[in-house]
Design a protein around this nucleic acid. Structure first.
Lengths: 338, 338
DNA sequence: ATGAAAGCGCTAACAC
DNA sequence: GTGTTAGCGCTTTCAT
């Protein structure tokens, strides 16, 4: 039988309200030092833990945030989660993690409706559709979207996608490439457009022509990356380098390149956006542009908390720290100057 | 303001107890059909959701299970989670996911002590130490360990590690290899021993000599896999094939092989235990032995639920479905017969 | 078959 | 400073 507040109060010889005041850390609790002492001692001795349900029922909040992600198995998302958890912990919240797939719209409604969680952080798909996003938006559900800015929704955070793509592209240009392709995301995915824009801007700025056929938009999965490179290699005129908009896709690009007998970086340089440990163990190791995922996680939580407090929240672009080029083995100067 | 049970009762013109009986689906609820009808209609119209805290407080349980994993970013674990979630859903439970790192011993105590979760599924480390496992075992915490059998603990599930290693080894033997090494796990990790045993048994059964120096035990991470292959390649006499005890380590093995200029499978065949999508996108694609992760997840939940119901639970080895060889590109016959 | 009432553990007015 | 009390939403005897 777990210890309750009244057990503690009894042992300390005080009322439950006194015990509550002390133990729930109400800053305004004006309590005689020795009473406080006795209560704290009793709680310690009894190993008291405040019952979650009692507290939640009384306060009408759970101090739990849900984080919904498209896919757990992405190394990229690990750093984001760390940011979320750091911030959540700082504010006394717990994080409940769920896959979008498992959590569908109905589950979100349940989580909120039953009072299990106070708010939702939704990492919108790097790799595909988001089930029922509309359903969520309709309801008066406290949601903050991560990794996408929703114009009709207050509260979202996004990465510096265009900047990162610009940096990646410039890296290839600096190496001397002039024939540069883009392995992009589905047009339905928020990040696809700014990443493509960054690529186009860097090319334009360098005065490089862009071939339409060198841009693919199949998506962010490894298989879609494979498909993209197969497409590019079926062309008569091929690029000597590609910017890949997503790490998973880049893994597919590398795999397909190998299957095609195409050597990286000698025949094709590959640079990708987003960084994670998996990029170090590909063959060759991937040159990437690291993105501020941790910061995005933190900021997302802060935004959500503001929103829960009734504040008007914005849609914010994470700029600090900026995207950073991480040079590994998948990029090199083009073999033959053209 | 969310709808409560008494809102529903009022609208249906019944007492809250009647409403509760109907809505909480008590099978013994003997209610006049038309009353039931009215209550259900009212609930539907009002969009009623039972408040989680009220329910948990009254029933002294949360219907939430926590699953603790060493690392989210392992593709391997994704299938396990799916098994867990399938089973949990079937039994009306929600799954709270946490990383061991974040969830340390204190957090577990909190989760249980505060009544936030009813029990814990602990996926013990494929890659390293488990913080505070002892602390958990001491407390009267309903925990089921997954992926390891703890002799002094009631309730754990494990994979057919020895069988899988035997199958992997036999595959290499069948291809004609006679010089076969093992890239194994740390001795502190439960799975390391049975996997090594399976390897040794298969070798013994085939009458093949085993060289001590061909077995490494650095661990299951990609970096440790790299280290293992570096060690093996520093030897005067080298194996022509290796069984790798873990998929992540195998990814490291492949990466390091490439850095060493060693071609797979021509100069070295690599087969690994555990399968996941990442195995399809390495260069070359990895030959693996698929393990019944989904079944282990399901079984773990069932065990935990039994335990919560006060049953005496066993330590179970998952045998159904059995391990299965998935041949891809990383294994081939040895180049030169020896 | 249905309702009245008690109480799960906690906090916050409101006394004193 | 500290205690008394009411009540958050729910389920469950116990009456009727």
């Amino acid at each position: 039988m777990p210890t309750t507040l009244s057990d503690v109060a009894a042992r300390a010889g005080v009322s439950t309200s006194a015990a509550s005041r002390v133990l729930s850390g109400a800053p305004s609790a004006r309590v005689r030092p020795d009473t406080r002492e006795r209560i704290e001692a009793a709680a310690r001795e009894l190993g008291y833990r405040p019952n979650f349900a009692g507290r939640a029922l009384r306060l009408a909040r759970s101090d739990v945030l849900a984080m919904v992600v498209p896919e757990l198995t992405s190394a990229v998302f690990s750093e984001l989660l760390r940011g979320v958890e750091d911030a959540a912990r700082d504010h006394g919240y717990l994080v409940l993690l769920g896959r979008a797939e498992d959590i569908g719209g109905e589950m979100i409604a349940r989580l909120i409706g039953e009072g299990r969680v106070d708010g939702i952080l939704w990492q919108t798909g790097e790799d595909g559709e988001d089930p029922d996003r509309a359903a969520v938006q309709e309801q008066r559900t406290p949601v903050v979207f991560m990794n996408s800015i929703e114009d009709d929704h207050a509260g979202s955070v996004a990465l510096p996608n265009a900047d990162a793509a610009r940096i990646a592209t410039r890296h290839l240009l600096d190496l001397g490439h002039t024939s540069i392709g883009l392995v992009g995301g589905l047009e339905t995915v928020y990040t696809a457009a700014p990443r493509e824009t960054g690529y186009l801007e860097a090319m334009a700025h360098a005065g490089m022509p862009v071939r339409r056929s060198w841009t693919t938009r199949y998506g962010y999965s490894a298989d879609q990356g494979r498909r993209a490179i197969r497409k590019l290699w079926s062309l008569k005129r091929r690029p000597t380098a590609v910017v890949v908009a997503n790490l998973n896709a880049a893994i597919g690009v590398l795999a397909e390149a190998r299957d095609l007998g195409l050597s990286v970086p000698e025949e094709l340089s590959v640079v990708t956006l987003l960084d994670a440990w998996t990029a170090e163990h590909t063959s060759p190791a991937l040159t990437t542009v690291r993105m501020p995922l941790h910061a995005m996680g933190r900021r997302g939580v802060e935004l959500l908390l503001d929103k829960l407090n009734g504040a008007d929240v914005d849609n914010v672009l994470i700029t600090e720290p900026g995207p950073e080029l991480v040079i590994r083995g998948s990029t090199a100067a083009p073999r033959t100057k053209e």
